[in-house]
């Protein structure tokens, strides 16, 4: 592209200017990067999730998925795995039957999770993280970290973090505004994740990210599961386990290294979280920092 052409294109939009990262900030971020590199000298692409899922996956499920793909015969879009569709529909029915919680703008969505973090030379640290996100996205949120096990280390410790407005968080009122018709919701998510690499994986990831805070919205929650059922490549993991060790039935996107497995209680079909992050509790809190009484 020659400079004239670039000029001409640039004029079609207002000029964004040249945002500058201050030299202070730049050297701070650089130092921080160097420290991370020193702490994680051998961090390379991990495939732990994939390995975990593969170890548990029942060959039958894979075979069924392959058959489903073959049956469509030559089409580029394989049909969703029927086992996964059935399971998702059952999960959706249960989710839809939960009571609706009335929520005020001045409240917070409370989500409590457990996960692990590998702080290389200090070993694996298990931590609990509680998040309070403002219902309307209009105020600061709060994250509280508590180390459950692992060695003392300078990088991860107990404490509170203030959460600023994050363009990547879907706040409760925004969730509420989403369509609850599964087809419409699916389309919206599908279109919204276009161009994000493996499209099926991105769409499923998007749905997964909304699951915890959608819990108090039964209709949307059910629609999210029904939308997931429309995504080809989702398959059942017969014996899954969340990262807190709770066993259940799982759903994952086959053939993907880094796709989390969603885990559900085998009996109640309650969402337990994933093999990367266990979902301990979800609720509506009056204040950031206050645990809802349920």
């Amino acid at each position: 592209m020659n400079p004239t052409e670039r000029e001409e294109l640039a004029r079609l939009l207002p000029s964004p200017g040249e945002p500058v990262l201050s030299s202070d900030r730049q050297s701070l971020l650089r130092e921080q990067l160097m420290r991370e590199i020193a702490v994680h000298p051998n961090t390379v692409v991990r495939k732990s999730t994939w390995r975990r899922a593969a170890a548990f996956a029942v060959p039958l499920a894979t075979a069924a998925a392959v058959t489903a793909t073959l049956l469509v015969g030559g089409s580029d879009t394989p049909a969703p795995d029927q086992q996964a569709v059935d399971l998702l529909n059952r999960i959706a029915n249960v989710a839809a039957a939960r009571p609706t919680t009335p929520v005020r703008d001045d409240q917070y969505v409370y989500v409590s999770t457990q996960s692990t973090d590998d702080v290389d030379e200090y070993g694996v640290v298990t931590l609990r993280r509680d998040d309070w996100q403002p219902v309307d996205g209009g105020r600061s949120g709060l994250a509280r970290i508590k180390i459950l096990s692992g060695r003392d280390n300078p990088y991860l410790h107990d404490g509170d973090m203030k959460l600023g407005r994050d363009p990547n968080v879907t706040y409760f009122r925004e969730l509420e505004a989403l369509p609850t018709d599964p087809e419409a919701l699916y389309r919206k998510i599908w279109d919204g994740t276009e161009g994000e690499g493996a499209h099926e994986e991105a769409a499923l990831e998007e749905i997964g990210a909304m699951l915890p805070s959608a819990t108090p919205l039964p209709e949307l929650n059910a629609a999210l599961y029904r939308a997931a059922a429309k995504i080809p490549g989702v398959s059942v993991v017969r014996n899954a386990e969340d990262i807190a060790g709770r066993k259940g039935v799982g759903l994952t996107f086959k053939d993907r290294d880094e796709q989390a497995t969603w885990v559900f209680d085998r009996k109640s079909l309650k969402f337990l979280g994933t093999d990367e992050e266990a979902l301990l509790d979800v609720g509506i809190a009056d204040k950031a920092g206050a645990v809802p009484g349920n």
Binding site: N168, T170, E174, L175, L178, K188, G192, E196, E205, M210
Partner: peptide, 9 residues
């Protein structure tokens, strides 16, 4: 945030 991307990741 525009309506077409209420849930961008």
């Amino acid at each position: 945030r525009s309506a077409d991307e209420p849930h961008r990741a």
